[in-house]
């Protein structure tokens, strides 16, 4: 994490803002330890030179207490913001341990989208994939199809998500879904091994599979550039 912060801080052109798509901490069943880890994470990322930082919970942060500890540190788990003509929507599909967005949040999403013109640029930020990427490994959102249905009338909607700890690109109709690499515990490709488990750590290549992504939004297109977690 500290290495990733240093790598982001050393970018020639700093980003306008930074998004963490969840799994800020590793799972613990102990509420005190969860808070200690969240506090430690917050302290590490406070070293980022860019101060506009957006957070989201992952299931490892929020699924065992419905996001209670997460909210103490980072506030709401779903929210919107606007930046240079792009409307961003952060969706929470992890505070429910069953991996649902839930009817209440879906109604909130529908109300927010109703205010957006059909051609406006919309970016959804979330943790789990909204489409059923590989449900055998819990790489899905139970009611993600409802969110996608709400996004369908919007011609310029794009989703960026976390959860699967690897680069992945998928399209549901015109909506693109992009997952970026993680900063720790890279995961194997969906269904490529019998059991879901992080790729074994190789001391010869300690940062293999880890990284972060830069997204440049220009004239309706998103240019994605992948960076390793440490400068090489």
């Amino acid at each position: 994490m500290k290495k990733a912060v240093a790598a982001v801080n050393s970018l020639n052109e700093p980003p306008d803002f930074i998004v963490f798509t969840g799994d800020l901490t590793h799972t613990t069943d102990d509420p005190k330890e969860r808070r200690r880890r969240l506090a430690q994470f917050k302290e590490i990322v406070s070293e980022l030179k860019v101060k506009d930082v957006r957070f989201m919970p992952g299931e490892h942060d929020a699924s065992l207490d419905r996001g209670e500890a997460y909210q103490e540190f980072f506030g709401k788990t779903h929210y919107t913001f606007d930046h240079k003509g792009v409307h961003f929507i952060a969706l929470d599909n992890v505070s429910d341990p069953a991996g649902r967005i839930g009817d209440e949040q879906l109604a909130w999403l529908a109300a927010d989208l109703a205010k957006q013109p059909r051609d406006s640029r919309i970016v959804v930020l979330t943790h789990r994939p909204l489409f059923p990427l590989y449900p055998q490994w819990d790489w899905a959102t139970r009611d993600g199809d409802k969110a996608i249905e709400l996004l369908m009338p919007h011609r310029n909607a794009t989703v960026f998500y976390g959860h699967i700890h690897q680069e992945h690109h998928f399209k549901t109709a015109h909506i693109e879904h992009h997952a970026a690499k993680s900063l720790i515990f890279p995961q194997p490709a969906p269904g490529s091994v019998p059991k879901r488990a992080p790729v074994a750590w190789d001391p010869a290549q300690p940062y293999r599979g880890l990284g972060f992504r830069q997204i440049e939004a220009e004239r309706g297109e998103y240019k994605l550039t992948e960076f390793p977690v440490v400068r090489v």
């Binding site: 069943d29 065992l64 341990p97 059991k195």
Partner: peptide
């Protein structure tokens, strides 16, 4: 055919299959 727990239940959830 694999089956798994799909309700996040704790620190060993990912291995519950």
């Amino acid at each position: 055919f694999e089956f798994a727990c799909d309700v996040f239940c704790g620190s060993g959830h990912e291995e519950m299959s």
